[in-house]
Amino acid sequence: MNEEERAGVRIARVRKQRGMTQRALAERARVSKSMLAKVETGHASASTAWIGAIAQALGVDATRLTGAQDSPEQLHQLVPSIRRALASVDLIGDDIDPGSLELLREQVLQVNTWRRDTKYGRIGAVLPDLVEQLLAAARDYGEPAYALLADAYRASNTLAHKLGYADLSLTAMDRMEWAATHSGDPLLTATAHYLRAAALARIGAGKQALQLLDRTMNEVEPLIATDPEAAAVWTALHMRAGTITASLADADSTSEHIAEAARVAETVGNRVVYETTVGPANVNLHALAAAVDLGQIGKALQIANSTVLPQDMATERVSHFHLDVARAHLLNHRPDDAIEELHQARALAPEHFRASGTVKTALQTAAAQQRRATYGLRSLANYAGIQD
């Protein structure tokens, strides 16, 4: 693999072009200087939120640092479908018959399943027509159709951000929030804010993401004592805040958010609420990701070794678990162990593996740590679209 294409090398190159020291860049991005040094030298693999903060501080798009849009061409063939699905909310012809609300609900449930199982190609094939039908249904059926439409826009966001198209991701979030607001369900709107916060963090707007989460948590908090669904959304909001504060090297705030998520998650249980995985197991996954971004090697490995994943946990979340365990091993300078975890991530969710910028960063970091890239690493890299 080409050393010059590693994210850390790209960061160092742009930083030097800007005449910035590591300390100056770390301060501007609000990240740990130690973590920055480790990423630049190939001793750590960064998350998308961390890369977003660095990209914002350097004044470049995050894909310039990760090569996220170097994914295999067949995945990028989904982009026209995403653009068409997001193109308009007010140009739906009167001649479109959306069919029954029940049939549309079944189609959205199928898309939601594909999203959790990382079947991105299947989503792209049906999404534009489904969104068009749902817009017509919203005109005819009102709030229930808007709730389904919000889920369809969420799927658009998943495709966009997995492929590294931050602009389309933000547009999808605009659409989802608009549909959620019209659904009359404040918890669906809060879920849209949970997702928007992640999109903001990926472009380096971590401060704004935390402001949005704080405002949303204040709105949801009065409901959690009596509404289990609100409690589930509450845990998701705190999990998101915990990973974002970790990317910004705020260990104290991270601990507070993860602890609050864990406290309430015990009453929620491991399940899916508003198409979001919640519960103690998913809190552990977020705690793992946060520990890696904070450079807490021992804590990250302890969480990884003690976490028991539910058998029915969403494929996307299990794939993320293996990816973050791989990042923990890289932080511990054990590239062979990291490669084993990456093999598992690929086997579980091949389309996610091929699209993910975080996967590419992890593979490049593993290559930097291995004296000579093994066949196993090279095969994973080729599968992810990284050329020898």
Results as ranks from 00 to 15, higher is better:
E316C: 04
R346H: 14
A347K: 07
A338R: 11
H333Q: 12
P310V: 06
T315M: 07
F353Y: 05
F353E: 03
Q344W: 09
H320I: 06
D337H: 09
L363Y: 00
M313S: 10
R317V: 08
R334Q: 15
L323D: 02
E340P: 02
R317C: 08
L309W: 12
N305S: 14
Q364H: 09
R334K: 14
R354P: 02
R327T: 11
A362Y: 03
E316T: 08
S319W: 04
V318W: 00
Q302D: 15
F321E: 04
T315K: 07
D312S: 12
D337A: 13
A314S: 10
N332K: 10
P350N: 08
L323V: 07
A349W: 05
A338S: 11
I339W: 03
R334I: 13
A345W: 01
H320R: 09
Q296N: 14
L342K: 03
V325C: 13
E316H: 10
T361F: 02
F321L: 05
H343N: 06
A366K: 00
L342D: 01
A304K: 12
A349Q: 03
K360S: 09
S306K: 12
E340I: 03
V308Q: 15
D324T: 02
L301C: 07
H333V: 09
Q296S: 14
A347W: 05
I297N: 12
A326P: 10
R354D: 09
D324E: 03
H333T: 12
H322V: 06
A300F: 15
T361L: 06
A366Y: 00
N332W: 07
A300G: 12
G357K: 03
H329G: 09
A366C: 00
L330E: 06
E351L: 03
L330F: 10
M313R: 10
G295Y: 08
N332Q: 11
I297K: 15
D312C: 08
V308M: 13
D337L: 12
H333R: 11
S306G: 07
V318I: 08
L342V: 02
V359N: 04
V318Y: 00
K299A: 14
T315F: 01
V325L: 06
G295R: 07
E341Q: 13
D324I: 01
N305V: 04
A326V: 09
Q364I: 00
T315L: 05
N305C: 10
A366F: 00
D293A: 15
K299Q: 15
R327S: 14
T315Q: 05
A328L: 04
N305Y: 01
E340K: 10
Q296H: 15
G295M: 10
F321N: 05
S319N: 01
R317K: 12
E351D: 06
P310Q: 07
D312Y: 11
Q311S: 15
H343K: 11
Q296W: 13
N332L: 07
A314W: 06
F353D: 00
L330H: 07
T315D: 09
H333W: 05
T315H: 04
R334A: 15
A300V: 13
A300H: 13
R317G: 08
V359L: 05
G295Q: 06
A349R: 02
A300W: 15
E341T: 03
L363N: 01
R354W: 03
D324V: 01
G357T: 00
R327C: 12
V325P: 10
D336M: 01
A328V: 08
H343S: 08
A338K: 09
A338Y: 06
P335T: 05
Q296Y: 14
L309K: 11
I297C: 15
A304C: 12
R327V: 13
K299L: 15
